[in-house]
Design a protein around this nucleic acid. Structure first.
Lengths: 326, 326
DNA sequence: CACAGAAGTTTGATCGATCAAATCACCGAG
DNA sequence: CTCGGTGATTTGATCGATCAAACTTCTGTG
């Protein structure tokens, strides 16, 4: 295999020095236009590409961000991470950033992986997904002065002026509130909520949205049924959620769900006549034609990269989801 | 931030030279046991980690494999890539390999990306998914002497003695044959097949499996209905497949499908009384409780890495899927 | 016309590891 | 007792880029 051209080769070809070539690439504003032109031409002619590892060694920056591929991607919404990843990789690419994957069985293993990745200059920033109460990863990262952004807000008491933890999240409460409101507008009153038991940040947030909309519409407490599908039960066994919904008497006018999996269960149990709204707008929702709250993953990805890149401005972003009507 | 220890630091601490430390790490068999011990202790004590970029610069190897994140992951089975990726990352990690993601809008863009990734020593091998007829990427990679393995066999005329293209695939024909046979055993005769139009490698392969099983059981041609859902039609609009199935008269005893999406469509159109078998064993199949042919993604990932690593032995692997009965 | 200061470019050193070749230690054969 | 040979370890050079500082060229001012 032919040897690849280096900065020195380009320099010689353009009749300048190594450093000038480097400057053309990294700080073009300090190079005379005419010189830049000549160097650019030489780069083009030789087909030069900077050697990423050499640059990293010297700059101590890898231009690579690490993203965890969750082990327990909970099935159906697994494609959510997929879509997010895709958006992230695409945007990152445009910024000259690479995305490296890693996995870890538990938090301790994940922290050990952080060390490995960071020390080896494999990555210089991390993107974490699925944050939860008492997440030990966050303090570790802050402590070790690692640059990171989470997709998911810090649940629990949180000081919004805390600039050490940057995060991006989607306002599930607003999304579910809109979904509920849309059902109310259609004249439904006894709208049940199918979700997860209290204690999960996202779950509670979504239930709160439903409650808000119901209260605002003046629906009496007696007509508000919230069903919680235990997490210890296989979240994929939609039969459970479905049976739970079917057991509600009298039968609800409509059901708002904390996920499309749950919505599918409800739909199967109640048939197509009872309107159902899901969450995440997965292919299943599209396929079955029920409405769903869609997270703006492109925007999330963009926001994550923005927060990662700049030290200025806000340190968190709460994005609005979009209700996909069908 | 404290400076990280380097080989030199370890060498000094252990009272040996840089190179000896390097040898302990890379070629321990040429170092005296006692010395190895001492160096190991020093590494432990200082918490030394090799600097990945420095090593890559020198060895010209990155220990990183590139994987494309498909843009048009067709929805439901998107989670398939997800699961494959997960298995791959996990196994790769055990072998000290990293997985880097990339995307590309079309084949030309993808080839341009190859050049970027390879020249910069970002990756030294590639894993390609979703191969198709006349895939231009393959000849390019062979031509440029790039190490790669595809998940997906080369469709079209192919010389199995060709050692330049290594691939791993799952034998869909066998899987669908088994699925069909299992329905036949249960006494069903008029088993329809719901798939994609001829021309897609995987689709044709799966249909062939169904036909084989039907022929073997002596089912007359008149009772064999193959329905093809046009790819130009939104593959997610399961209604189309469902309507097609529902239109078959007389109503089939059971339906074998080329994917779980199609199976969901059939299930919704025919109700739970007509047995349906899907493909890919996605969460939807698990949720609705219909059987599905599962690809052994763990094995696929392991095989991909094996083929990448060794020059010996076979250059392709055709794995058997597993029918998940429910 | 000399000279300070800015602008543009070049030179030498360095990042952390491994390669290639040299050196050192030790053993048994002649 | 010397010498060849193997095994273990060390030394010097190098991978390709950027940093820091030195140097050269230009520009405008007194």
């Amino acid at each position: 295999m032919r040897r690849l051209p280096t900065v020195s080769d380009v320099a010689e070809a353009a009749g300048v020095s190594r450093q000038t070539v480097s400057n053309v690439l990294n700080t073009p504003e300090i190079v005379r236009a005419e010189t830049t032109e000549r160097v650019r031409a030489a780069i083009e002619r030789l087909g030069y590409r900077p050697h990423a590892s050499a640059r990293r060694l010297r700059t101590r920056r890898s231009s690579t961000i690490g993203v965890r591929l969750d082990p327990g991607a909970d099935g159906m919404s697994g494609s959510l991470l997929d879509r997010f990843l895709h958006a992230l990789v695409e945007r990152a690419d445009a910024d000259g950033l690479r995305v490296l994957l890693y996995t870890a069985v538990d938090e301790d293993a994940e922290i050990a992986t952080f060390e490995r990745l960071l020390d080896g200059a494999d990555v210089d920033a991390l993107v974490l997904t699925s944050t939860h109460y008492g997440d030990r990863r966050i303090p570790w990262l802050v402590e070790h002065d690692v640059r990171f952004v989470t997709f998911g807000r810090p649940w629990g008491e949180h000081d919004t002026t805390d600039r050490s933890h940057r995060w991006v999240d989607v306002d599930g409460r607003v999304g579910v509130r809109a979904a509920t409101a849309s059902l109310l507008e259609q004249g439904h009153r006894r709208i049940a909520f199918l979700g997860w038991p209290e204690g999960s940040g996202t779950g509670d947030d979504r239930r709160a949205g439903w409650r808000e909309a119901m209260l605002a519409a003046g629906v009496p407490d007696a007509d508000m049924t919230a069903l919680d599908l235990g997490v210890e039960e296989d979240p994929l066994d939609l039969g459970i959620g479905g049976r739970a919904v079917a057991a509600v008497a009298p039968r609800p006018d409509a059901v708002v769900c904390a996920s499309d999996s749950l919505a599918l269960g409800a739909r199967l149990a109640l048939g197509p006549d009872v309107p159902v709204v899901g969450y995440d707008d997965t292919p299943v929702a599209r396929a079955l034609g029920f409405p769903s709250v869609a997270q703006p993953l492109d925007e999330v990805a963009a926001a994550v990269l923005e927060l990662l890149a700049s030290d200025e401005g806000d340190h968190h972003r709460l994005l609005a989801p979009r209700l996909v009507r069908r």
